[in-house]
């Protein structure tokens, strides 16, 4: 047996594959989620994130590969899987005509919680997500952020081992998103493993212990936010000169430079070493060759840089629309 990893996986997926007709939504992916961590799937809409989640929460029948959640096989023991997890779906899934309390009550009943435990848990959770004053309000009268908080409370109702969050902050304003992250972190601190999907860089970056970048149904890379950024080198240096072509040719051969990418008007160097230390020598080298520098910018790689590097595209909301439609289509069959 393996001894390398002291924390046992709470989710392990091997060679999972899922097709909608000819379209391969999930293409033989494998990954593990460690007990107690916040694990993110970062990728554009249509990348296959929701398909994976739907298989893990037993709503979608597994086609190929294995998926074990909380120690139970999703196909052989769906009932046990369901009892071990909490889910916050991508779209709001509240009955508009039930009150906040009834929503939680209904959920507790669905999961067969005893009355006394149900009541105590509702009180506790409404305080946690700060909805205790909205107890008897119909859910249709709640703001978007409140609805999301109520859904998170609902997902936590049964004290699940794992909480699945499918795009938890989609469509929320920046302040509400930050607050939501706090709630999610609090929940995680209390011992719940979190599996979340997102197409927001900052969300994956700030919230997660580990991130898998997923694109076209495949996991491109997995690691902590720091690890992923480090794969791009220590720093990114952006330069504009009076002779970019010559500058690129010269800098390519400098030992500390790992990679050069041409941008409009200038170019970006990815460097192995501390950028602030090697920048003076780079400037000297260019000067000696008679090249004048007009602009310098030094920055640490961000999640955006990582994403662009590994998927070859910027992640933008508007570009995601057609892919999303493609994902929804198979529902009809």
């Amino acid at each position: 047996m393996e001894h390398a990893d002291p924390v046992p996986p709470i989710i392990s997926v091997e060679n999972l594959e899922h097709r909608y007709g000819d379209f391969t939504a999930v293409d033989t992916i494998s990954f593990t989620v460690k007990k107690g961590e916040i694990f993110s799937f970062l990728g554009p809409n249509g990348a296959g994130k929701s398909t994976v989640i739907n298989i893990l929460i037993t709503l979608l029948a597994r086609q190929k590969g294995t998926a074990v959640v909380a120690g139970y096989d999703v196909t052989a023991q769906p009932q046990q899987v369901r009892e071990s997890i909490g889910i916050v779906f991508q779209d709001i899934t509240l009955d508009r005509d039930m009150t906040v309390r009834e929503t939680l009550e209904f959920h507790g009943r669905l999961y067969n919680m005893p009355v006394s435990e149900r009541r105590a848990r509702i009180d506790e959770l409404l305080k946690l997500v700060q909805l205790d004053t909205k107890r008897d309000e119909l859910t249709k009268r709640l703001s978007g952020g409140m609805k999301r908080r109520l859904e998170i409370a609902r997902g936590l109702m049964t004290r699940p081992k794992i909480l699945f969050l499918d795009e938890p902050t989609i469509g929320l304003d920046p302040q509400t998103r930050m607050r939501m992250w706090e709630y999610i972190k609090n929940v995680n601190n209390e011992g719940t493993t979190i599996f979340l999907t997102t197409h927001y860089m900052d969300e994956a970056d700030q919230l997660s212990d580990r991130i898998s970048i997923i694109d076209h149904g495949k996991i491109v890379i997995t690691g902590t936010s720091g690890e992923l950024k480090n794969t791009l080198g220590r720093d990114l240096i952006y330069l504009e000169t009076d002779n970019n072509d010559a500058a690129v040719r010269i800098l390519k051969d400098v030992a500390a430079v790992r990679d050069v990418r041409i941008k409009s008007g200038g170019f970006v160097l990815t460097v192995h070493e501390d950028g602030t230390k090697i920048l003076p020598s780079l400037i000297d080298t260019l000067r000696k060759n008679g090249i004048e520098i007009s602009t310098i910018n030094l920055k640490k790689p961000t999640m955006d840089d990582v994403f662009v590097h590994y998927t070859g595209k910027e992640l933008r909301d508007e570009g995601a629309a057609p892919a999303r439609a493609m994902h929804l289509q198979p529902r009809g069959r």
């Binding site: 369901r82 779906f89 899934t93 009955d95 999961y111």
Partner: peptide
């Protein structure tokens, strides 16, 4: 409505 607005998912994903 439950199917389109999602509550059906909550029900189907539960152990019920």
């Amino acid at each position: 409505f439950d199917k389109n607005w999602g509550l059906m998912r909550e029900i189907l994903a539960s152990p019920t």
